[in-house]
Amino acid sequence: NITNLCPFDEVFNATRFASVYAWNRKRISNCVADYSVLYNLAPFFTFKCYGVSPTKLNDLCFTNVYADSFVIRGDEVRQIAPGQTGNIADYNYKLPDDFTGCVIAWNSNKLDSKVSGNYNYLYRLFRKSNLKPFERDISTEIYQAGNKPCNGVAGFNCYFPLRSYSFRPTYGVGHQPYRVVVLSFELLHAPATVCGPKKST
């Protein structure tokens, strides 16, 4: 009989979030998941669920729940959905087409922007091929755009693959930082360890 609440607040209220290319994953298990708490945590810009209804979450049980978190800019949030393409979905964080879970995003301009520009958040701009779903690539190998090998040196047709967002508070919403948490629900042929409040007794 599990009584402890799932530590969603640790994920959502973390002081620092990860850069999207090096997104963070927390496995959540053996706890009571009260998803209604999430609705009250922040004024969400996005709370979209796929393959599951957000209002039914509190009635369900899962084997595992994974919470992935990272920062992107406002106009990239739409890429965090099944079947999307674009720089983020292709080279940084890719959801599977049959994704079961929820994408939660909110504006973090007050936390993640600086007047002089916050350069701490990076994204991958160049990659030889698209990522597979939930693949994480943290390599910093020089990207070869031409025929000549780069031998690890940046220059003509040889690019450092990561680029930094420079978040400034005066930017338009599309270029402001957004914190994203992706909850993916895993149903294996194994005992369910993460249940809503109704199912945990």
Rank of each mutant, 00 (worst) to 15 (best):
N58S: 08
V37G: 02
T63Y: 06
F45C: 02
S200N: 02
S129C: 12
L187R: 00
R16W: 12
N40H: 13
N1E: 00
V32E: 13
A42R: 07
R73M: 10
T55I: 04
G152K: 12
T46L: 03
K26R: 06
G83S: 14
R16C: 05
F44T: 02
K198H: 02
N151L: 05
K114M: 15
F62M: 08
K56S: 10
K199Y: 00
T46H: 08
V37Y: 02
Y35L: 02
V115H: 15
N40G: 10
V52T: 05
L5H: 06
Y39C: 07
G83C: 12
S139T: 03
I138K: 13
G196V: 06
N40S: 09
N58E: 09
I138M: 09
T201A: 00
Y21F: 14
F45H: 00
V115F: 15
P191A: 10
N40Y: 09
P197A: 09
S129R: 06
T63L: 13
F160R: 01
S139A: 14
H189P: 01
S116P: 15
A42I: 11
K132L: 10
D98A: 12
A154G: 03
S29A: 11
F62N: 10
T170W: 15
N151T: 13
V194A: 05
N109Q: 11
K110S: 06
Y91L: 13
V65L: 05
Y119M: 07
S166Y: 14
D97A: 10
V32T: 02
Y121H: 15
A33G: 13
N147K: 05
K128H: 00
A105W: 05
S53C: 11
Y119V: 15
S129H: 00
K56D: 12
N24D: 05
I142T: 14
D9E: 08
N4L: 12
R163V: 03
Y119A: 09
L41Y: 03
F45K: 08
V153Q: 01
E141S: 06
N130S: 12
V65M: 09
P191Y: 09
R168Q: 08
V37H: 04
S53D: 00
S166W: 09
D59S: 01
L111N: 14
S200Q: 01
I104V: 09
K114H: 15
T55H: 00
R73A: 04
L5M: 07
S129T: 02
V194R: 12
T46R: 08
S166T: 00
T193V: 08
D90S: 03
V194G: 06
N109M: 11
T193G: 04
P43T: 11
T3Q: 01
A145I: 09
N120K: 00
S166V: 14
K132N: 06
A190Q: 05
F62Y: 05
L122I: 03
P54A: 02
A18E: 12
Y119D: 02
Y91W: 14
T193W: 14
Y39T: 07
S113A: 09
N130H: 12
L122E: 01
K199S: 00
L125K: 01
A42N: 03
Y39E: 01
R16T: 04
A22K: 11
S200C: 03
F45I: 05
S116G: 04
V173L: 06
L188S: 06
V153W: 11
A42P: 02
K128M: 11
L41S: 06
G146T: 08
E10Q: 07
F160I: 04
V173T: 00
D98N: 07
G152D: 13
T46E: 02
Y119F: 02
F126W: 04
T201Q: 11
K56N: 02
E135D: 14
N64L: 10
P191Q: 09
K114D: 15
K114I: 15
Y119S: 08
T201R: 03
E186T: 06
D9P: 13
A105S: 04
R163I: 11
A192Q: 09
D75S: 04
T170N: 14
N157D: 06
N64K: 09
Y39G: 04
P7I: 14
N120I: 13
F156C: 09
Y50W: 10
T170Q: 11
N147Q: 05
S36N: 03
A190W: 12
A14K: 07
A14E: 13
P197N: 08
S53G: 09
A145T: 04
F156G: 02
P7V: 01
R27L: 04
G174Y: 02
T140L: 10
T140Q: 00
V37S: 00
R163K: 03
S200M: 08
N120V: 14
V194D: 08
T46Q: 04
D97R: 04
D97S: 07
P43D: 03
G196I: 07
T55M: 06
L38F: 06
K26T: 09
K114R: 14
A14R: 13
N30G: 03
L60N: 08
V32I: 01
K110Q: 09
L111E: 10
K110P: 13
N40Q: 10
K198T: 02
L187V: 01
N151Y: 04
G174T: 06
L188W: 00
S200K: 08
Y123H: 04
S200L: 03
V37M: 03
N87M: 01
N58T: 09
P197Q: 04
L60Y: 02
A192K: 02
V37C: 10
L188F: 01
Q144K: 11
T100N: 12
S184R: 14
N87G: 12
V153N: 08
E141K: 13
K26L: 05
N64D: 09
L41M: 00
P197D: 03
N118K: 15
D9R: 06
V153T: 00
N64E: 01
L131V: 09
P7Q: 06
A81Q: 14
R27N: 07
L5C: 13
A190E: 13
A192G: 02
N64P: 01
Y39S: 05
G174R: 08
N64A: 00
F160M: 08
N64Y: 03
F156V: 08
K56T: 12
F126M: 01
N151V: 13
Y50F: 12
G196E: 07
T3N: 04
N157G: 03
G196N: 02
G83Y: 12
N87T: 01
S164A: 08
T100S: 13
F45R: 02
N64F: 10
P43S: 07
S116D: 03
D75K: 08
F126A: 00
F44S: 09
F160C: 13
I138C: 09
D59E: 03
F126T: 13
F45G: 05
G83R: 06
D59N: 10
D75Q: 14
N4Q: 09
F156P: 03
N151D: 01
D97Q: 10
K148F: 08
A145N: 07
P43A: 07
K110A: 08
A42F: 08
L41N: 11
P197C: 06
A67C: 11
I28M: 06
V153R: 00
L57F: 12
K132Q: 04
I72L: 14
V153S: 11
L111F: 05
T170A: 15
L187W: 03
I138E: 08
L60M: 03
R16S: 01
G174L: 00
P169R: 15
L60F: 06
F45W: 01
Y178T: 15
P43Q: 11
L188Q: 03
F156N: 07
N30E: 14
N58G: 09
K199E: 05
T140H: 06
Y171M: 06
T3S: 07
K199I: 10
P54E: 08
A192V: 03
L188K: 07
V153P: 14
T201E: 03
V173G: 12
S200A: 08
P7H: 12
A192P: 09
D90A: 09
A33Y: 06
T201L: 02
H189C: 13
A192M: 03
F62Q: 13
N109T: 15
G74A: 14
L188C: 00
E10R: 11
H189D: 06
N87F: 03
A22N: 02
T100I: 08
S36G: 05
R136Q: 13
F126C: 07
A22H: 11
L125G: 00
L5V: 10
T100H: 05
S36D: 00
G196Q: 00
N151K: 01
L122R: 06
T46I: 02
P149N: 03
F156E: 00
F62H: 11
A42W: 09
Y35W: 08
S164R: 04
D90M: 13
L125P: 01
S129Y: 12
